[in-house]
Nucleic acid binder design. Structure first.
Lengths: 381, 381
DNA sequence: CCTCATTCGTTCAATGCTTGAACTTAGTGC
DNA sequence: GCACTAAGTTCAAGCATTGAACGAATGAGG
């Protein structure tokens, strides 16, 4: 690598810094210089190709205070967008996201994936993507694709609820249908990413926990989703809380999933759907409340173990757990208080995700916008 | 940061690359250029100040084959050294280590720390450090200090077996006594580091597990010891394996430590010391074997949980567990086989540490030599 | 309307490390 | 001695940031 290459890397790094500052909020060259620590001269220089390339726009001067008025820069309203897509057991979803973090279009359609072939699913997803991108002339940076399974190097290596997809390379197949650069990832990881990009919810390090059929944790360390060497990191569902406990489909015994999975909660509560459970809880049904509390205790033990290993102070409960948050919190927190070693005084923060059912697709789209910002050379294609 | 500063960073990065290659093995400028991917011109340039500064020496030309003979570069035999020191419940230890990874001097002295004040301990450690460094004129880069407790930002925040030390800033106090730059860290982290630097034992990612009074895991991710946000990462001893199990001193129930700690093993085996247990095992004592096997089962459950969360393929058993390895392995591996999800086919590698009782001090010294190589500007002081 | 103060944005010379090619050095083989 | 080979050295070229000076655009005050 020549010195010239190194200097180009420096430039790309500065470009990234500037774009990150702009994701936070718009600002004039002078403001951005102050926020990034770069000089005004550098900022003028860096902004030039971004404006020429249609990534940013210069707004008309704002007339405020003394001195020459500043012309704020912001992401171009007709600039590039990213697509997020989600294949789940009971639904498909897509979303388009701008570089500024604004959601443009959304679709969520119920569908029973267990009865569908991979081709049918991909066709439907491709159709939905066409729907949300078709009307506009904006450049599409790529698509993130979320699935409920473990992904390693682009291949699905485990998907207990979508066994037909194991071994598939869905990204390539969706890429062929849409002409887009597609990135495949696990839904738990992407839900976690949605809480981190483009806006931070929980500071630097946190764990995002969701339940559908299984229980997945997305672990965020140092601002990055931690995936492990083969994509299996954060398998909270198979943390053992009773070594001679209930047999699990994974071959082990006493996995958290067998005590705190959504299917278990519904069964114990005598309900068939999350919505019905929620209503029962609101109506004060004692059986429903007991089922959720019992699950919360098991979940709390598992999360405590996770926190003692990762030493991460914050836990975000998402998906179904966010819906049940009010009835889960106390049991989970109580286990954490009794079991997490924590730093000096016990500080464990438990939050409910505010993102609702679109967290996963939003994370999938965020994967793409984030990559574009982190590798700004992608914006000049 | 000016462009000139960036270029200086590039130079320091290249210096680091070259030093890392030399830690691996000596080599001529041409050989190092080939191994690092830099050019011969750059290598000549980088080597010059290292030779002038007495960090490296040029060996006489080796006469091998055709062409101009090469003059290999290696770390100067009278170059800088680092000190490692360990305070433990039952002993103190120190070691000096060269940049090339060679151990120069070692001391290990039994001592009951529970009866000693911090001042007494520090005086003794300082005395040992003088012993191992006094005879030589070599520059001392600093000292690593290992303690059996959780360290966060230089302060001991938890030390169940050395309660007197909690809240202390031992690094500064030892620094005053020795005139050295002292780095304090947890013994489990440093034992793990010893398996990673200066020579790799287990590839990229692994977990190193030791037992003394408690059970600690040093987690190595991406070539770095993972410490968590407040130094509590890898608290394997307090992973729960039976949520309604035995009460633990930490306030929780069913912690691995209560089933697989060294004190538990010795008690169940009816022995008082590790050495006596080892002899009993060699003699085929069935009670001893059963105690170790039972502990191995509990340890295996805890490690399986750890592996499902971190997705790290390799586990190194160190300290007392390395001594008991032959009798532990089967039970641990069996739990791992039944419980770890792993990548596709189940690949979990279980190893015994080859480093023996000096692993921790070696890691402590390695902390300093590693820092010197990673921040080569420190070598030109 | 003019001038001053103020802030925004632009221009420009200086800076230094790696590179690759050409060159020098120091051996072997015949 | 001469050709050959490989190690090590010399040197001009190349580029993004900086800081200071400069130009531009406004408000305040007379």
């Amino acid at each position: 690598m020549t010195t010239v290459d190194h200097l180009r890397q420096v430039r790309l790094g500065n470009l990234r810094t500037v774009l990150l500052a702009l994701v936070d909020r718009p600002g004039s060259r002078a403001d951005l210089a102050a926020r990034t620590g770069l000089t005004k001269a550098t900022l003028s220089n860096l902004a030039e190709p971004l404006l020429a390339g249609g990534i940013l726009v210069e707004e008309p001067a704002t007339l405020a205070g003394m001195g020459r008025p500043s012309k704020p820069l912001r992401f171009h309203p007709a600039g590039p967008v990213a697509v997020g897509a989600e294949i789940n057991v009971s639904h498909l979803a897509v979303e388009t996201l701008g570089l500024d973090g604004a959601t443009l279009e959304r679709r969520l359609v119920p569908a029973d994936m267990r009865k569908a072939t991979a081709d049918e699913v991909l066709d439907r997803i491709a159709g939905l993507i066409r729907e949300v991108t078709g009307g506009s002339e904006r450049t599409v940076l790529g698509a993130g694709l979320a699935i409920p399974g473990v992904v390693h190097e682009g291949t699905i290596v485990r998907a207990p609820n979508l066994p037909e997809f194991v071994g598939e390379r869905l990204a390539e197949r969706l890429g062929e249908r849409t002409g887009l650069d597609v990135q495949l990832d696990n839904e738990a990881n992407l839900a976690a990413l949605a809480h981190l990009w483009p806006r931070h919810l929980a500071g630097e390090d946190f764990v995002h926990v969701t339940a559908d059929v299984g229980i997945g944790a997305g672990v965020v360390l140092g601002g990055e989703v931690y995936r492990g060497v083969s994509g299996f990191a954060g398998e909270l569902g198979h943390v053992v809380i009773e070594r001679n406990g209930i047999r699990c489909t994974c071959g082990s015994r006493g996995c958290v999933e067998r005590y705190a999975g959504l299917d278990v909660i519904l069964r114990e509560a005598g309900r068939r759907r999350l919505d019905s459970l929620r209503k029962a809880l609101e109506a004060g049904d004692p059986r429903a409340a007991a089922a959720v509390r019992t699950a919360g205790e098991a979940l709390g033990v598992g999360i405590a173990t996770l926190m003692n290993l990762f030493d991460v102070p914050t836990v975000v409960l998402g998906g179904s757990y966010a819906v049940l948050y009010d009835h889960l919190r106390e049991a989970v927190q109580s286990e954490l208080d009794g079991r997490v070693l924590a730093g000096g005084e016990r500080h464990t923060r438990l939050l409910a995700s505010p993102l609702g059912e679109f967290a996963v697709v939003r994370g999938a789209a965020g994967l793409i916008t984030r990559r574009a910002v982190q590798q700004p050379e992608r914006l000049f294609a």
